[in-house]
Structure formats: C-alpha cells, structure tokens
Design a protein around this nucleic acid. Structure first.
Lengths: 216, 216
DNA sequence: CCGTTTTATTAGGCACACCTAACTCTATAT
DNA sequence: ATATAGAGTTAGGTGTGCCTAATAAAACGG
C-alpha cells in the first residue's frame, strides 16, 4: 500500500497548508484549493483515512503524524526546488512556484540531498519560508505582519506570502524581498495604505499586501 | 486531445530508442522495454495511432513526424537533466539515468532553456549522447564501436551505451569515459577480449562492453 | 507440409481518480 | 417553527491504463 503517489502528495500538501489557519480543514475548502469537486475530495479523504494519513472527524480533516511527515517532505522538496530554480538556474522568484509544483513529485531523497548540498544548505525558499530539514523539523520564528507595524516601526522582511507572479514582480521591483529592512513611515487610518521606506525610497502599500509580508 | 502526458511520452521515447536498431518496432519488444504486458501495449499503440503519433502497419510500429518530435523533446529533457545532475548537482554518471527518467516529465520548456543556459549549452549527456536542440535537431557523427578497432588503432571515446550502474562505475574507474583517448593494443581471436591502453594503463575488455563504447 | 512456437489481438475486468445529480443533514434567519 | 442556504455524502457514471486468459495469425523447423 504505497502512500506517496503524486495525487496523495498533493492532497496532503494542501491539507497541510490549509491547516495553518483553519485548524481542522473542511472538505469544501480543500476542494476549492485543489480545484476539484467536493465529492471527489470526500471520496479521496476516505482513502487517505484508510491509509492512516488523515483523521476525518465531524470538525473536519487533519493530518496524522504520518500524513504530516509526508506533507513536510513534499514541502521540503518544493522549497528546495524553488531555490534550485532561482539560485542556480536563474529563474525570477515569481516564476518558480508552478515549476516547483511539478518538480516536487519527481525528486528522490538522493536528489534532495544533492540539491541541498549544492545550494549550501539554504534555510528558506526564495519567498522566505523555512525549508524543513531531512527529519521534517521546521524552525519557526515569531513574526509580525508588516500591516501591524505602527508608524516609525522598523523590521526586516522574512517572508512574502504571495503566489501571483504579477504581484511578486511588483514587490521585487520595490525591493520588498526577504532580508531587506523596511520602515513604516505612516499608517493611514480606516484600513488605508501604509507608507513604507525601503532602501531610501518611499512607497504606499495596501493593507492586504502588507499583511502577507512578515517581518521580524 | 492532449498528447504529452507522461505515459505517452514514455511510449514515444521507448519507440524512438528501439527504432534506432530495429526499424519498425515490434509490439513485443516495446512491451518488454516498457515492462508491460503485450496487450497493454497493443491497446495503447492503437490510441497513439489515433492521435497520429505512430503508424502501425504489419511491419511494426514507427513514429510519425509529430511522434518523433515529441520523442526528441523528451530525450532532450532527459539528457539535459542528466547533465544538470552530474555537472551541477554532483551526481556520478552511473546514478543519473533513473533520476532523469522521472525529471524528464516534469520539465517545462522554460526550465529546459534555463538548464541549457546554466550549463553553457552542452552538446551531449554525460554518457556522450547528443542533446537535441530546441527544434529537435540532432548532430550525428559517424562513429565506430571500440570492438571493431584493429590492434594498434586509436580513437577518442564519444559515447558509452550502458545503463547498468555497476558497469558504468567500473568503466569510469578505468577511465573509459567520453573525450578520452584509447588505443587498442591487441585483439584476442575468436571473440576474445581486447587489450586497451587508456591514459598509460592497460586493461582487458570484453567484446560485448567494447561494442557499447563508440569512438571517433 | 504440418505441428509448434512466437507474435499480436480480442474480450473481459480491475483500480484509480475524477465527474454530476440527488440526497441528507445542520444551522440560521425570519 | 419552518423555510432555506450551505456543507458533506451517496449513487452512479466516465476515461485511462493496466491486467489475464483465450484466440488468431504468422514464422519456422523437421
């Protein structure tokens, strides 16, 4: 009973991601995320439960230890792939997500190791998210969304939670990328934009985007 | 009607390879090569014919222009992957085949381009086989198998047609790899071994292996 | 030339992962 | 309290790619 076919990996990965915010994941959210019909997901979830990869209760779906282990393995391969694509193959950070979604299912443990070593053991993906280590251990820092800083607060960008290429390009063009220092100059009231200062330039930034940028 | 699902790519790739020696490919050889039952291959062949990717006559199966185009695209990705694995990720030449078999179906045209450029436009895979260009054009040199050289003939190794890792390791340990100059010292009669000289050392080499090494 | 082996196909099934339509809850809003 | 919306499952069906067993046709050795 194999547990690591691409399809299963995709389900577990999605559940893992959704689990971050919404603790037990609902069938409908999962279906939406995977772009599948609700019954398909319902059925597959039953199979995953049989394989002891998820627990399916009234509250929703959550990963078992084993399911979690596999999900993190896939995420590790995804993020290592992204690094390979940017650092070695010269892709921009906005181009790598879809590419990595395909690669993550085609990478063996050996290749994983080789990529990691060739890249000099990177700690994060190009968007700033931590790469789980071989054992699935993830180093978590406590971070604040940029949107919650007050006027005159400073921070260093750690991660940018955004997949849309256009938006990523835009952010990169402003220099809003991991490792960079930002200062909030003003915060417009009533949910208005933030005025931020990045490497000497001032930009207005919507609250929504700002909430996707995490700083420390 | 998609034509480039992994399964189809694998069939076309296999047909392409078998086509090299046996012009129209037989169902049974293809089944053996793909490690599938004959009826499965028979059935799939019908579908490939419907999609105009192969012609299936009494003589056997052969690729159409379109089938050929796709097969070469896959081979290009396979060989570029192998180069990526050896040149950048530090794999040995005997480790890359299986890895590349998985990668070749997960590589987009953009990634193909990026790999090629990052590698400095390599002309061959690590085993010395030509990498088709973007348009599927393959540069073919006329080569002789090492096994056909006479005593005192010299040649430069171009390619090594071998997939068994143990054998590849062995050949590498003797220095029998592409670009290397070999001299045949003696040829034992009755299909016996060749005595070859590689970078100052003498080795006895079976005819069968020698026939897989092509020189110019 | 005929029996045997090899080669290819047909027939019939199975597993997988998806779908739509229809049904059953539950949760709420009036 | 009841109509209704939303979420989740069941039922039934599809396409794909594989299998075994049985059959047909071609190739070959004596």
């Amino acid at each position: 009973m194999k547990a690591d076919t691409p399809r299963i990996e995709e389900y577990l990965e999605s559940i893992y991601k959704l689990q971050q915010d919404e603790h037990p994941v609902s069938t409908s959210r999962l279906a939406e995320h995977l772009k599948l019909s609700a019954p398909s997901v319902s059925e597959m979830t039953k199979k995953l439960a049989q394989k002891k990869l998820v627990n399916h209760t009234e509250k929703g779906i959550c990963l078992t230890q084993e399911g979690n282990r596999i999900a993190k393995k896939v995420i590790r391969r995804h993020r290592l792939s992204e690094r390979l694509l940017t650092d070695i193959l010269g892709f921009r950070w906005d181009e790598v997500h879809d590419e990595a979604c395909r690669l993550e299912h085609a990478i063996s443990p050996e290749m994983e190791k080789h990529i990691e070593e060739s890249l000099g053991n990177p700690k994060t993906c190009p968007h700033g998210f931590p790469i789980p280590d071989e054992n699935g251990v993830i180093v978590k820092e406590k971070l604040r969304p940029l949107s919650e800083l007050k006027a005159r607060d400073k921070g260093i960008i750690v991660s940018v939670f955004e997949e849309d290429p256009k938006m990523l390009q835009y952010l990169a063009s402003l220099g809003l990328i991991p490792e960079v220092c930002v200062k909030v100059e003003e915060v417009a009231p009533f949910g208005g934009p933030l005025i931020v200062c990045v490497s000497g330039s001032r930009y207005a930034l919507g609250r929504e985007v700002a909430s996707k940028i995490k700083v420390k």
